[in-house]
Design a binder for these strands. Structure first.
Ligand SMILES: Nc1ccn([C@H]2C[C@H](O)[C@@H](COP(=O)(O)OP(=O)(O)OP(=O)(O)O)O2)c(=O)n1
Ligand SMILES: [Mg+2]
Ligand SMILES: [Mg+2]
Length: 897
DNA sequence: ATCCTCCCCTAC
DNA sequence: TAAGGTAGGGGAGGAT
């Protein structure tokens, strides 16, 4: 019983910690690193600029004469006014009044600071995207074992071949891909073109790098190194689109892909059966270039380490293979800093021991390295210096923490400012938890506090030299609610007893995560596996799956989960104590052996499941189900068995799908109404699934460039030219033409806020106004999926389209905890109504958008139906379980019809 | 020994 | 002007 007291007294959980000792990393480590680098590599006198603040801070001598006026804290105001008169950025009539620093764009002036900040933070974007691409193609734990290249994989003991692909100067390449005249000029991406500014360079192309311009340095240093440097703005939407294409291509060529970041991934080509690996890589790079207009480089090696090092030599726009016999040679003179995992701290430690190259590192015994650097770090150093790396491609597991930090522009004058900021931070974190479908039990608030001896930060609105304070609390009940977060966080903050003037940054992390739809129960009990194994038991089939590792990953968790559970009352109520016995896992560890054989599954139903559900089932069959279905379908269509060489890649893509594969919808048309061939069930009326096949042959993906571009400019006359079935299809979606969907009572959506009956939502003109009417309605609905949709729509950039926001949001709808409830059904109806009105709005102006959204609407409808069908076909006691797991309110009647 | 908790370090 | 985020690995040191 570790719970020591009510949440109102979180100080009992521990004390605030403060790092008071003076170490380089406690200063402005970025600047320090940056300038150290300059000293070592560039030897320019301007490099002492930031060092100045460093020594001021360390000595406490704020009056020390600076070497360069703009960098001096005391001259910062005049420096700022100089900036505004910078001819590069100043419009003709744009005479600005000098102002004091740290005002504009800080939390002091912008009430919506948190949201705006994340919209512009490059580091936020790349962090978010890394996560997305890891999740979009999750690998099975323990590495990829589900290769569908056949059972022969054990026979061939090929040497491992790893490929590492990385886009060249990604942010620059994307922005200049249609501006060939800039290709050979030095170009960098930065928020500011101010030659005295402290904005950071995000990425620099290779001509710029030859002048010493690189990611992370201030624009003023970049400009002084390269006066003709062309600075261009970020285009985050374009980065996203290119990254999507990049990953689509990688997955087309290889089913073992591990995302490193939005522009970088490892492929395991060992089992790909390719004989000429160089040609294979060359083909991939060519396709990336053709599809994106940006070049990628690639490294090939016997492990992930050597592949990554090879990429370094391959850049730019090249590829490099390091065969086993070249490894020693390649490493001998390589600086230790080039090894992944060795940053400036470790490099410095090694340099102090006269070790600068991997060759020298090899001279040290493993025992010595482990003694000096720790057990694992020591052996990694020993291995890496010899080119040894036994990591497997694809061993990313579920995320352990989710958080948000802001350490720029944070300035407060009173407690109200702080509370406002923290509330927004909580909203942000809550949104991310919802987006991931998880809740957390541990909350950590981090505060950056200006050191007493620190002057103004060198960086405009930066956090400067700070002490880091952090405090955390663990609660018994996992949550994702803004209210709970806010209460916890505000109490964490109160215990810091900090002077609000000194705050330079804050962050909130949530850990001890649990899946949202299972946080109140043992996960296994209501899992899809349970449905399958139970049905299988009934039909008397067994299938061994002992080689599976992924599915029983939760078992340990349930066993350990014998903790005291306290439920939290809403708003101000303290926790109510309540003990819960550990849910003994009935369908868990002991019963892993019983899945029905694949040919007894009703393929139509399986295919029509929500992607997440399908993916889970596919995992249970070791990834073979997707392939099985692909084959079966192709046999059905043609009479010959068509052996497709790329079948494994396709199977993987089908498994992970995520994009809008219309075949899914086509599968609904066949309308198999039972999960298993052997199960009996009532047929579902055909009329309830109308016209689902109409556009099933057209390829649809999440890509915005799906439709021929000529179509996106058409008007109604082009609509008339469309194939008859497509026209019918679209017209049918319009309320004026046909309205079989239930109209939704708006008051139900807002059930928690008001009980009076409002107007039907279908009678509201959702797309009137700016922001459109529905934003407020959805935001007030207390329905997670609608709230997320509205929030994401608001956040989408200027070029926002409903389709892209919808695509993101809809993938969440089946994993929300309220799935199957009345509220969920209403949410589905609301979405349908929204899409229908949107179609009406766009029908004559943007046929591409109409096309995509009509597919989405179709899918939404089909999915809802199929979910109900699956439920209807479950054994009664599982229906009860499902109903119970959804809070006892699973309501078939209210879904869709 | 093994686990847990609080950081630092690293990479993009 | 300017947007110094994010999350996992792992070491140190204390609890068990
Ligand atoms: N300190 C950094 C590092 C990277 N990035 C962003 C911009 C880069 O374009 C992108 C990818 O990072 P890379 O390390 O792959 O760098 P580039 O792709 O720009 O160059 P390279 O050709 O070396 O891969 O991440 C950033 O904003 N700030
Ligand atoms: Mg790159
Ligand atoms: Mg990269």
């Amino acid at each position: 019983m570790s719970y020591a007291g009510p949440i109102e007294d979180p100080i009992s959980y521990g004390e605030w910690q403060s790092a008071e000792d003076l170490k380089p990393r406690d200063l402005e480590s970025k600047d320090l690193m940056q300038e150290n680098y300059n000293v070592a590599r560039v030897e320019e006198s301007t490099c002492s600029v930031a060092m100045q603040e460093l020594s001021d801070a360390a000595s406490g001598d704020g009056s020390h004469a600076p070497l360069s006026a703009p960098s001096s804290p005391h001259n910062c105001a005049s420096a700022c006014s100089d900036w505004t008169s910078d001819p590069v950025n100043e419009g003709p009539s744009n005479l600005k009044i000098p102002r004091s620093p740290n005002q504009k764009h800080s939390t002091l002036v912008d009430a919506n600071f948190v949201e705006n900040y994340f919209k512009h933070s490059r580091l936020h974007f790349i962090g978010t995207w890394r996560n997305r691409y890891r999740k979009r193609f999750p690998s099975s734990p323990g590495g990829f074992r589900c290769s569908s290249s056949g059972p022969s994989s054990s026979a061939t003991t090929n040497k491992t071949i790893i490929i590492h692909v990385d886009m060249d100067c990604f942010f620059v390449s994307v922005v200049i891909r249609n501006r060939p005249e800039l290709k050979d000029k030095p170009v960098a991406i930065c928020h500011s073109d101010n030659p005295r500014g402290t904005a950071e360079i995000s990425s620099a192309n290779y001509p710029a790098r030859s002048h010493g311009v690189k990611a992370g340095i201030f624009v003023r240093d970049a400009k002084s190194r390269c006066p003709h440097l062309v600075i261009l703005s970020y285009d985050f939407e374009a980065y996203e689109e290119v990254a999507d294409r990049f990953y689509n291509i990688l997955h087309k060529y290889c089913n073992k892909v591990q995302a490193v970041s939005c522009d970088e991934a490892f492929l395991d080509a060992t089992d790909s059966g390719v004989e000429d690996i160089q040609a294979f890589v060359s083909m991939i790079r060519k396709e990336i270039l053709d599809a994106t207009g940006c070049s990628a480089s690639a490294g090939i090696g016997g492990n992930m380490l050597m592949a990554r090092l090879a990429t370094r030599t391959a850049k730019p726009d090249g590829q490099c293979y390091i065969p086993a016999e070249k490894v020693e040679e390649h490493l001998r003179e390589l600086p230790v800093k080039a090894l992944p995992g060795i940053g400036h701290v470790l490099e410095e430690k090694l340099n102090r021991r006269q070790i600068t190259t991997c060759g020298q590192l090899r001279m040290i015994s493993k025992e010595t390295l482990q003694k000096d650097f720790g057990y694992k770090t020591g052996s990694t150093l020993w291995n890496y210096s010899r080119g040894i790396d036994d990591r497997l491609v694809g061993t990313i597991q579920e995320s352990k923490s989710i958080g948000a930090d802001v350490n720029w522009g944070v300035r407060f004058k009173d407690l109200k400012d702080v509370q406002h900021f923290l509330l927004n931070l909580c909203k942000e974190v809550s949104l991310r938890l919802l987006g991931c479908g998880v809740k957390g039990r541990k909350f950590t608030l981090k505060i950056k506090k200006r050191r007493s001896d620190a002057g103004e930060p060198v960086k405009y609105l930066g956090c400067g030299v700070c002490d880091n304070l952090s405090h955390s609390v663990t609660v018994p009940m996992a949550t994702d609610s803004v209210d709970v977060l806010e209460r916890v966080v505000s109490q964490l903050f109160m215990t810091s007893h900090i002077d609000v003037d000194g705050i330079r940054g804050m962050g909130l992390q949530v850990s001890k995560l649990e899946t949202a739809d299972s946080s109140k129960q043992g996960k296994e009990r209501y899992s899809i596996r349970s449905w399958l194994t139970a049905a299988s038991t009934k039909t008397g089939h067994n299938r061994s799956s002992s080689h599976e590792k992924g599915v029983d990953a939760d078992n340990g968790k349930n066993g350990v989960d014998e903790r005291q559970v306290q439920l939290q009352g809403d708003s101000s109520t303290p926790f109510i104590e309540m003990t819960e016995a550990s849910p003994s896992v009935t369908a868990g560890s002991g019963q892993r052996g019983t899945l029905p054989p694949m040919n007894e599954l009703d393929i139509g139903v399986i295919e029509s499941l929500p992607p997440e559900v399908f993916s889970e089932i596919n995992d249970m069959y070791d990834g073979k189900l997707a392939h099985f279905i692909t084959e079966k379908r192709s046999k059905e269509k043609e009479n010959i068995s068509f052996a497709c060489p790329a079948a494994s890649g396709e199977a993987f893509a089908a498994c992970e799908e995520q994009q809008y594969n219309e075949e899914e919808i086509q599968a609904v048309v066949s309308c198999p109404n039972k999960l298993f061939v052997g199960m009996k069930s009532e047929p579902v009326s055909d009329a309830s699934v109308p016209n689902l096949d109409l556009i099933s042959n057209a390829p649809v993906s999440g890509d915005s460039g799906l439709m021929p571009s000529s179509l996106s400019q058409v008007d109604t006359s082009v609509f008339q030219e469309l194939p008859e079935d497509l026209k019918t299809d679209i017209l049918e979606l319009l309320p004026a033409h046909r309205n079989t969907e239930s109209s939704l009572d708006a008051s139900l959506v807002c059930a928690n806020n008001q009980s009076s009956t409002g107007p039907s939502i279908s009678s509201i003109d959702l797309w009137v106004g700016d922001p459109p009417e529905w934003i407020d309605i959805f935001k007030a609905s207390n329905c997670q999926i609608l709230w997320i949709l509205a929030e994401m729509y608001q956040r989408a950039g200027a070029k926002k389209q409903l389709s892209s926001v919808l695509q993101r949001t809809m993938s969440q709808i089946y994993i929300l905890p309220d799935v199957g409830t009345d509220g969920w059904a209403e949410a589905v109806s609301c979405l349908c109504e929204l899409i229908k009105q949107y179609l009406k709005l766009k029908i004559s102006t943007d046929i591409e958008e109409v096309y995509i959204c009509s597919c989405l609407l179709r899918r939404l409808t089909a999915r809802s139906k199929i979910f109900v069908e699956v439920y209807n076909n479950m054994l009664p006691h599982f229906q009860a379980s499902v109903s119970e797991s959804y809070g006892g309110s699973f309501c078939i009647a209210s879904v869709m019809e």
